[in-house]
Design a protein around this nucleic acid. Structure first.
Lengths: 253, 253
DNA sequence: CGTATTTTGACTGAAGTTGATTGAATCTGT
DNA sequence: ACAGATTCAATCAACTTCAGTCAAAATACG
């Protein structure tokens, strides 16, 4: 594994995350690599589900970024299953804290029709649940991170300080033995406050996230109470997760 | 200057979603693409059911965005003109605090394309402005009042305590010589915090609001710096408003 | 040091996209 | 109902981007 290669792919991912869309030519000039190389990088990032290739470039689809166009696309089947399973695990009448992200958005979809109190800093999730008569929605405010629709920053953090809930349901950018990662430091800071606000920490992640780290370290595995993952998770990773004292739920179709 | 296919189609979809309808020529000049290309894009978006093609352009047919959406479709012409006039009165680069409501939503529509910092507790306004690249959006969180999509309650109030802006732009339920009124005590409480947070208080109201009171008294007329009203306002009311030391702006078509 | 493996950049024909150009269909004003 | 204008679908050639292949370069490893 060449260091240069991984580094370049990480940086490409960051560029795509920041801009939402990037043309292949842009990446070629930006990194001084050949078309073929960049094309292979995009192919790889598409393979692990972090981006979606389009003719002429690529678009971001990874966690923690929920462009509003996302509503027109369908999330991966894995994420949908995870969303349904998690929603069924939550007892009616509860209060839950819902992190932003594509997987948690699927959880929110699963919650439709239930009687719950939901706290979230995600605009897309708020839009989805605001229409639900049985759901009482509490919005965490703050600086609205463009294109992602997630409220972050000092306002969000001080609002989270006043909130206490039995569970938080979080998405993540990557999971390794060292813990959870996300791609944005501002986001990680806010997610730390979420961890503080909740007794139990549930993490939803599709299996492509395992073994992937990202820019910012969020927390140790020991902070996590429960993980809900799709059936594609390897046996060795199941061992690691259970070995860390985490209750592992596999979301089957 | 060619553009990635998917990106252009997404942006076209966003434009149509926001405006309800666009002409083909408008899209051609906006994206600098040829008629043929735009026409093919519309054909595609029609094919996947997100828009409906019409002669000369296209209309939005996607799943209803939010239940609040219909509110601004049915906004009266008076409110629309007020919105445009107010938006033109705001110098670029400013920070404004935007109250919730149908008239302020029209103000927000007028702000599209400007470079501003906007603070709001209204979910519909946040949805409208979150996608604008030149607008930095700060969301006031809190309990989301279901009917109107406005964040209220203690969380909203403590967030507003940390905010200071040169102007707040407020809607209102009714105006009499005794001051401003609104129909909801929780809302009024929150709006009082907005008054505290701003140096200048601008009130937008269509002329039908004058002479009407409502459940909860918000503040005296003396708190208001400026009012923007449609041309239907009677001379006697104009006297009353100016007599209270308020700068009165009549929004003409 | 030499060999195996991975990564890279150039090249290819294939496939997709674009803008211009047609004549047909539709709209508008009289 | 008519003429003129606009919009449309269909087609085509130029252009761009694509996946696949191969050999050179870089790296890993014994």
């Amino acid at each position: 594994m060449s260091m240069i290669l991984d580094q370049r792919r990480d940086e490409i991912l960051q560029v795509i995350e920041q801009q939402g869309f990037v043309s292949l030519q842009d990446l070629v000039t930006r990194f001084g690599a050949s078309e073929s190389t960049v094309r292979r990088d995009l192919e790889h990032l598409d393979g692990i589900g972090q981006i979606r290739r389009t003719r002429g470039g690529a678009a971001y689809t990874g966690e923690s970024i929920t462009p509003f166009e996302e509503r027109f696309r369908s999330a991966s089947r894995e994420k949908q299953t995870i969303g349904k399973v998690v929603a069924d695990l939550i007892p009616p009448g509860e209060t839950i804290l819902l992190d932003g992200g594509t997987t948690t958005l699927e959880v929110a979809r699963g919650l439709v029709g239930k009687a719950l109190q939901v706290v979230t800093n995600s605009l897309p999730i708020a839009n989805l649940l605001a229409q639900q008569p049985n759901i009482e929605l509490i919005l965490i405010g703050g600086y609205l991170y463009p294109r992602t629709g997630v409220a972050l920053g000092p306002l969000a953090e001080s609002a989270l300080r006043e909130v206490h809930v039995p569970r938080v349901i979080m998405g993540t950018g990557g999971i390794t033995e060292k813990g959870l990662f996300n791609s944005n430091t501002l986001l990680v800071q806010c997610e730390r406050m979420m961890l503080e606000a909740a007794k139990e920490v549930w993490v939803v992640a599709d299996s492509s996230k395992f073994g992937k780290s990202a820019l910012a370290h969020l927390c140790e595995l020991s902070k996590v109470t429960r993980m809900i993952v799709d059936a594609g998770l390897s046996d060795s990773w199941r061992e690691v997760i259970r070995g860390a004292g985490i209750e592992l739920t596999i979301a089957e179709t």
